[in-house]
Amino acid sequence: MKAAIGVLFLLLTACAAPPETPLPDYSDSGKGLPHSSALIHLSARIAEDLERNHDLLNKRQLIAVTTPVWLNNINASGRLPRQLGEGLLSALHQRGFNLVELNSSKQIRVSEQGNLILSRDYQRLEANLPVNQVLVATLSQDSDGVIINSRLVDIANNRVVSTSQAFLSWQESAGYLEPSYSVTEQQGMLIRDEQPGRTPVREVTP
Rank of each mutant, 00 (worst) to 15 (best):
I155E: 09
V100L: 11
E126R: 11
N157F: 07
G145V: 06
E101L: 09
K106I: 13
S173T: 04
G32I: 13
M189Q: 04
V153T: 05
P18R: 09
S105C: 07
T21K: 15
P68T: 12
P196G: 08
S164P: 09
A64P: 00
E112P: 02
L56G: 13
I63S: 08
S104F: 11
N72C: 06
A174R: 00
F167E: 07
I74S: 10
L190C: 05
R151C: 04
P81N: 15
G32M: 13
T163R: 03
L80F: 10
R159S: 03
Q107A: 15
G188N: 15
D121W: 03
P206K: 01
L8C: 11
I148T: 05
L84N: 00
D142N: 15
K106D: 07
D144C: 04
V100M: 12
N72E: 15
T67N: 09
S90V: 13
A156K: 11
G197D: 09
L10E: 01
S169C: 13
L168N: 03
L168E: 03
E51W: 06
D154H: 04
V110K: 09
V7I: 12
R109S: 04
L129D: 00
L42P: 02
I40M: 05
P81L: 10
L88D: 10
I117G: 09
T66Q: 00
H41V: 04
Y26R: 00
K31Y: 07
N53K: 06
D193A: 14
Q107W: 12
S77D: 12
S36I: 06
N157M: 09
G197F: 10
P24M: 10
N75G: 15
Q195K: 11
S27T: 00
S140A: 14
N158V: 04
L125N: 00
G188D: 11
P130D: 00
S37E: 14
A156Y: 06
A3T: 07
N157P: 10
A47D: 12
L89C: 01
L135G: 08
F97N: 00
L92R: 15
P130K: 01
R202S: 09
R159W: 04
V136Y: 02
S119F: 03
Q123H: 09
V160L: 06
S180F: 06
L71Y: 01
I5K: 10
L139G: 07
S27N: 01
S29L: 13
P34T: 14
E194Q: 15
P130C: 00
L23T: 05
S27Q: 01
E172A: 14
N75C: 03
S105F: 08
V7N: 08
N58F: 08
A38E: 05
V65D: 01
S162W: 01
G87A: 13
G30W: 08
G30N: 11
V134R: 08
A137I: 04
F97T: 00
L139C: 12
E178N: 07
D193V: 09
L50K: 03
I148E: 02
L135R: 07
I191T: 08
D154C: 05
Y26F: 14
H93V: 07
A16I: 14
N149H: 13
L152G: 01
I40A: 12
S162V: 13
R82D: 08
D121R: 07
N158Q: 14
L129Y: 02
